[in-house]
Design a binder for these strands. Structure first.
Length: 954
RNA sequence: GCCGAAGUGGUGGAACUGGUAGACACGCAGGACUUAAAAUCCUGUGAGCCGAAACGCUCGUAUGGGUUCGAUUCCCAUCUUCGGUACCA
């Protein structure tokens, strides 16, 4: 535990000056906390635990800007508040330090990414420590450290060694699957596996070689090799991130990019689809975020139907195309079939006459990203294959088209086209002159647009004619199952997660390849004792000449000196999918965290981070957590009980307006710009105060504006324009927290960031308002110290009822507001409290001591200083007891009712707090203002809402 | 395109479950103190109308409709901005 009774900082009132000297105060307490390890959190069964976590940052080269600490300040306030409430708080910080930017920088400069990452982290820590967070730095983690990624690799190995048993609804060790195969073959096995798994008997299993058995098991493991589509850039010889592709070409160099299938590691997250969906009901996350996850998982109930291909050319050919539909009831309206351009049957289905068209279309589709393909709905594109399928219900022949709105990786890569019921199908049918068949009598105007109604009775629909939706669906599914041409099916939108990256700066995959009897490489895990598998040194951070990932450059990098390692690395989300457990026991060399620590800290009680992680990090983390639970390593089904999405802080850019066609560079002030022809240019916000440009600083800061630029001023000032944009270097609107801390102090920064607005909301940063927060602290200071001579003026006097009322209404509001994480209104509440105490000239210890505790989560250095001044043990405000609210101080004898006439407030009247509505009615009617509005009439109704409002209805 | 969110004074925002719209700040204006400035303190500040003033009236929470005694809050439609869209983290 931290030392609460340290007396190394003896306090001397005489040294205090009139001013609030934030700089020395903050340094003093930061040093104190560090030396005393005040916030070190250890397992302590005597106290209830509270785990509050921030999404850890990626340490970028640009350092922190004022937007980054927003969430950390909020979580720190909660951490400090919970300590005051008697909780044992775990509040750690670390770094998600693998990633593309460091690698990009390495490619440009040749510097090892570990080196730049280290430098960036050092800078981040410096900046974070400057803000006075109560982090337990002894638990810091970095995902790129081998002693961390050892355990990321270890989890990968557990996934490789596991399969998903749908009967027990959890992951199990692969050995339980082997045991089942040995006993009964696939009979009675209900496993999640690759699509091409076929059933086999015990005899067939036993007849297989060990090698074939091993190959077969690969189809069941929770991490497995599979083909997935990537952005392949032939010119760069590498796979590009979606971010690195703009308009179909690489962002760097502008080389063409194509969609290519590549064999990669995947994670079988689909096995957990239902649990990921159902678990959402048990966690306190924003409903909008849960909705995003639900939609991402995309459970849909429907049917799969197999359509026979007409006139199959040879017996070798596949003779069916399977589709999934959520509207099997519309099957009689099918007038075409669409398959993805990547569909495996494209070649087989294309007739010689159509070959040229189809080839051209496939080539074009390859150049388009998935996002382009999904977004483009205005123009219809597609190509006829020349072949047909037969609708199993009515034996009708319908043409097969390719169209890029069908994605190969989604469902079966084929859809049935029902133009009367689906707008995109309708557009497609209209474009290609295909029939539009009405199927429900309730469908209206289908010659103008599709109508997806489920109302009415079926027409033109064979066996379901005259039925309604529910009955028709049942009938059709029964029919399909009876005839073995389809079945009822639940389908998910979520796909298995691709886990390979053709990059250097990520966790190596702990896998090596050994040739099988045919010389084909087979993947095997390395021995657990060989973990961590460290990143080897390479000469440059580029793919090899033969197109292998950068790890292919490592010399003599072989497992047991003979086997090829896997050359791809893990994705960014690997290290972040379990890190909250590592914080519990960050230095453990035997386990990812001790059982004792995991059992004590359990799940995160409050997790703060951006909503942009909704379907990435937050879904993968839930997946890995469930997996670790299945294997018995952790207890919790959900890793974060409560989650708040903090909104981003945007930049506020300033502009100057430069005259076009002027000989000398000339800048015109904002409000005069309309009279000239001007170009707006970004100007560094740090030389603009309240939208007034520091002209001299501007002149000397730029070398592109000539020797003597001219300025057209208004009222002797140059006024800048302003706009809200993303905070970024290129927009000259980045504000560094260090600058603010230097000028106003960390406590002011913390207060102001919270005061800016609701945590969840996106809002622009504008340094202008910060003086209000700073003045507030100085105002508090003046309650303690005389602003003339610096004398300590707190007295041991009895507080008045009025002062107690101010204090206790503040305590109550603060509790309520923190309870609902309304961090901004707490600041207003504290301001109102101080305004009122100042007006009352209250300098009483009994009141001010509690006020200091209330302030301490927001402005910890400031609070420690005043706490010590009040005569308390140095550094102990962090563990003081939060003041107990006493409602007795707030009892009011009367209530001031707003009196409204037809909903508009016309006057106010005071009634006893417990006055019965009848008395209030009588009083209201007697009032002269009300009389005036009544104009002698009797009101229709009088609504009295006790302790709220009275409304007289005329 | 699809999924999710936001839109309130000159600015950031407040109004918690439908009950006085604009709390608290910034900015601006005026005043006190000062040789002066800073700091501090006081007053005013949504738009408009009437008026000497007090009082009062009308409009007003992106836009257009609706529900209700009463709507920033609930419902429908539209517009704009932002996040995600499976290899940014």
């Amino acid at each position: 535990m931290s030392s609460l009774h340290s007396s190394i900082h003896s306090f001397n009132i005489k040294k205090m000056s009139a001013e609030y000297k934030f700089s020395s105060i903050e340094k003093k307490w930061q040093k104190f906390w560090e030396e005393n390890q005040t916030f070190k959190a250890e397992v302590n069964h005597a106290k209830p635990k509270y785990y509050v976590l921030d999404m850890f940052p990626y340490p970028s080269g640009a350092g922190l800007h004022v937007g980054h600490p927003l969430g950390y300040i909020a979580s720190d306030i909660v951490a400090r508040y919970k300590r005051l409430r008697g909780f044992n708080v775990l509040h750690p910080m670390g770094f998600d330090s693998f990633g593309l930017p460091a690698e990009q920088y390495a490619i440009q400069t040749g510097q090892h990414p570990a080196l730049t990452t280290e430098q960036n982290i050092t800078r981040y820590i410096e900046q974070l420590k400057n803000i006075g967070f109560s982090f337990d730095w002894s638990k810091e983690v970095r995902t790129s450290n081998p002693d961390y990624y050892k355990w990321t690799q270890w989890i990968f190995m557990q996934l490789f060694n596991s399969w998903y048993n749908k009967d027990t609804d959890k992951a199990e060790n692969i050995s339980t699957l082997t045991a089942k195969f040995e006993a009964n073959g696939t009979n009675g096995v209900n496993a999640v596996c690759d699509e091409d798994c076929i059933p086999f008997s015990v005899e067939e299993w036993n007849a297989k070689s060990e090698e074939d058995q091993y190959k077969l098991l690969l189809k069941y493991r929770l991490t497995f090799l599979d083909y997935s589509v990537v952005n392949w850039c032939p010119a760069l010889g590498t796979v590009l991130a979606n971010d690195e592709v703009k308009d179909g070409v690489s962002e760097r160099g502008g080389y063409p990019v194509e969609q290519k299938k590549m064999r990669q590691w995947s994670m079988r997250i689909t096995a957990y689809a239902d649990r990921l969906l159902n678990g959402l009901d048990e966690i306190d996350w924003a409903e909008s975020l849960k909705e995003q996850q639900r939609n991402w998982i995309g459970r849909s109930q429907g049917a799969s139907v197999r359509f026979k291909i007409a006139d199959v050319k040879s017996t070798d050919d596949t003779s069916e195309i399977e589709v999934f539909t959520t509207r099997v009831d519309t099957i009689y309206g099918v007038s075409f079939m669409v398959i993805a351009p990547e569909h495996e049957l494209v070649e087989q289905l294309t007739t010689p006459e159509q070959k040229e068209t189809v080839d051209a279309y496939v080539k074009w589709a390859k150049s388009r990203s998935e996002l382009d393909r999904m977004s483009e709905v205005k123009t219809v594109s597609g190509a006829f294959t020349g072949s047909y399928v037969i609708n199993p219900l009515n034996e009708e022949k319908v043409p097969i088209f390719l169209a890029d709105y069908v994605l190969a990786g989604y469902g079966t890569g084929a859809v049935m086209g029902v133009p009367s019921g689906d707008q995109r199908d309708w557009n497609f049918a209209t474009h290609f002159n295909l029939p539009i068949v009405p199927i429900l009598d309730a469908q209206a105007d289908i010659e103008k647009q599709a109508d997806n109604t489920k109302e009415g009775k079926y027409i033109n629909s064979g066996i379901i004619n005259g039925m309604t939706y529910k009955k028709a669906t049942e009938t059709l599914i029964n029919w399909l199952e009876e005839k073995s041409v389809g079945k009822g099916k639940v389908q998910y939108r979520i796909r298995n997660a691709v886990f390979s990256r053709q990059r250097y700066w990520g966790e190596p995959v702990p896998v090596y390849f050994k040739p099988d009897s045919n010389g084909e490489p087979l993947p095997y895990l390395i021995n657990e004792s060989d973990l961590p598998l460290e990143l080897p040194a390479i000469d440059k951070y580029l793919p090899t000449e033969t197109g292998e990932p950068p790890l292919g450059r490592a010399e003599n990098w072989k497992y047991q000196d003979q086997y090829e390692y896997e050359l791809s690395t893990m994705p960014g989300w690997a290290g972040s999918s379990w890190y909250w457990y590592r914080y519990m026991d960050a230095k453990n060399e035997q386990e990812f965290a001790s059982k004792e620590a995991v059992d004590y800290w359990k799940a995160i009680d409050l997790y703060i981070g951006g909503s942009e992680h909704a379907t990435g990090h937050l879904l993968y983390s839930r997946f890995w957590n469930k997996f670790l639970k299945d294997l018995g390593y952790v207890q919790e089904e959900e890793f974060a009980k409560k989650l708040i999405n903090q909104g981003m802080i945007q930049g506020r850019s300033n502009f100057v307006y430069r005259l076009k066609n002027a000989d000398t560079p000339t800048f015109v002030s904002y409000n005069l710009r309309k009279d000239y022809e001007v170009v707006a240019l970004h100007v560094d916000v740090n030389i603009v105060d309240n939208d007034i440009l520091d002209v001299e600083a501007f002149k000397s800061s730029r070398n592109d504006i000539g020797e003597n630029p001219e300025f057209i001023l208004e009222n002797g000032k140059y006024v800048c324009g302003a706009e809200v944009e993303k905070m970024s270097k290129s927009k000259f609107n980045v504000v560094n927290p260090d600058t603010i801390v230097e000028k106003y102090g960390a406590d002011t920064l913390r207060l102001y960031e919270m005061f800016l607005g609701p945590l969840e909301q996106f809002k622009p940063w504008n340094t202008n308002g910060i003086s209000g927060s700073h003045n507030f602290l100085r105002k508090v200071w003046r309650l303690f110290f005389d602003d003339q001579n610096g004398n300590f003026k707190v007295k041991d006097e009895q507080p008045t009822p009025e002062e107690l009322k101010v204090l206790h209404s503040t305590i109550r509001k603060m509790e309520e507001e923190l309870e609902r994480y309304s961090f901004n209104t707490v600041v207003s509440t504290l301001m109102i409290c101080v305004n009122e105490l100042s007006a009352l000239k209250c300098h009483k210890k009994a009141i001010l001591q509690d006020l200091v505790i209330l302030l301490s989560p927001y402005t910890p250095h400031f609070a420690e200083e005043l706490w010590e001044a009040l005569g308390n043990a140095a550094g102990s405000v962090s563990f003081a007891a939060f003041p107990v609210f006493n409602s007795a101080y707030l009892v009011e004898a009367s209530f001031d009712y707003p009196i409204s006439i037809n909903g508009k407030v016309r006057t106010n009247l005071s009634f006893a707090a417990d006055a019965p509505p009848s008395d209030i009615e009588a009083g209201v009617l007697a009032n002269e203002v009300v009389q005036k509005w009544l104009e002698g009439k009797t009101p229709k109704k009088i609504i009295v809402v006790p302790k709220r409002i009275v409304n007289v209805v005329l």
